[in-house]
Amino acid sequence: MKKSFLALSIIISSIFSQTAIADPKTPGTQTGYSSADLLAKGVPSDINTVSVEALAKELKGKPAMTVGFDIDDTVLFSSPVFYRGQQEFSPGGYSYLSNQQFWDKANCGWDAFSQPKTIASKLIAMHQARGDDIYFITARTPSDCDFMTNYIKKTFDINQMHDVIFSGSSKDAYLKAPYIKQHNIKIYYGDSDGDIISARQAGAEGIRIMRAANSSYKLLPKNGLYGERVVLDSQY
């Protein structure tokens, strides 16, 4: 069974590692490695990795702060939601991402089929134990419902839950940056290049959460591309 899984992992790597590119608006400064690369070859020495335990030790004794999390592929493995949306609204294409009907389905109920990421549970528990304030900021198109806020609150047992912030997305600007700055967020966790760049634009540290190799969100980003810290074992 282990051999079969390893073989499958290598096949996945050969397909997806070739598709990992930097955010077109901001060139990378380091080599960077996709989650598929790391799955097949292990973690190379030139990636600046950090564990949840190391972060907790680093923050020990420091005053409580405000931290932020992206949602898709950071705290939730939401590929089932996007796969369902594509099949229902634009089979074989991506026009569903511009369809408000899809976003209403996704934001107002379909996330019940999203799988919470283990790494998110660990990080959120660590920050709550410190008394840190937590915000969730997503690039999704907003809907007139509060399902996601309630779902995340219940799923991760959030003590003081703020409404999820829907920044929307843009090809020309990093729309999360103003929200990160507005709420004085010091650390922002995310899987995409845009998450890391948005955090830096807002004066925060962007820490990379690895996107699962089997995520429906392609192209796979290259972890460590900007020299950012990457959380170990964060692909699941």
Rank of each mutant, 00 (worst) to 15 (best):
I180D: 11
D70L: 05
V164H: 05
K176N: 03
S78M: 04
F89V: 00
A56E: 10
P44H: 02
A20C: 11
D233C: 04
F77Q: 05
F16V: 07
D104S: 06
A177S: 13
K176L: 12
T49P: 11
N184C: 10
Q30Y: 14
D172I: 12
R130C: 02
Q128F: 01
Y188E: 03
M161Y: 06
F5L: 15
S170F: 05
S143F: 03
T141G: 03
K60Q: 15
V164W: 07
Y135V: 14
S95I: 00
F147T: 04
S234K: 03
Y135M: 10
T74D: 05
D133P: 03
I12T: 03
D193I: 09
W103D: 00
T49M: 10
R200Q: 15
E58H: 04
S167W: 07
I11W: 07
F89Q: 02
R208G: 08
A40R: 07
A125S: 08
D172R: 08
S121P: 00
D195W: 15
K218F: 05
N99K: 02
I124P: 01
C108P: 15
P63L: 08
H183A: 07
L219Y: 15
N99R: 00
K222H: 10
T49Q: 04
F113Q: 13
S35T: 12
Y96E: 09
S4D: 08
S9I: 08
A204R: 15
A129H: 01
G224D: 13
P221H: 13
A54I: 08
I12A: 08
Y236L: 14
Y226T: 13
P24A: 04
I187C: 03
T74K: 12
I137V: 09
K222G: 00
S9N: 09
A204L: 11
D191R: 03
S45P: 01
A56C: 05
F82A: 02
I196H: 07
L38R: 09
T141Q: 04
E205G: 10
S9T: 11
K218M: 11
I15A: 05
K105R: 14
T19Y: 08
V81M: 05
F69D: 00
D157C: 12
A202Q: 14
S51N: 04
E53R: 07
F136T: 02
D37K: 03
L8F: 15
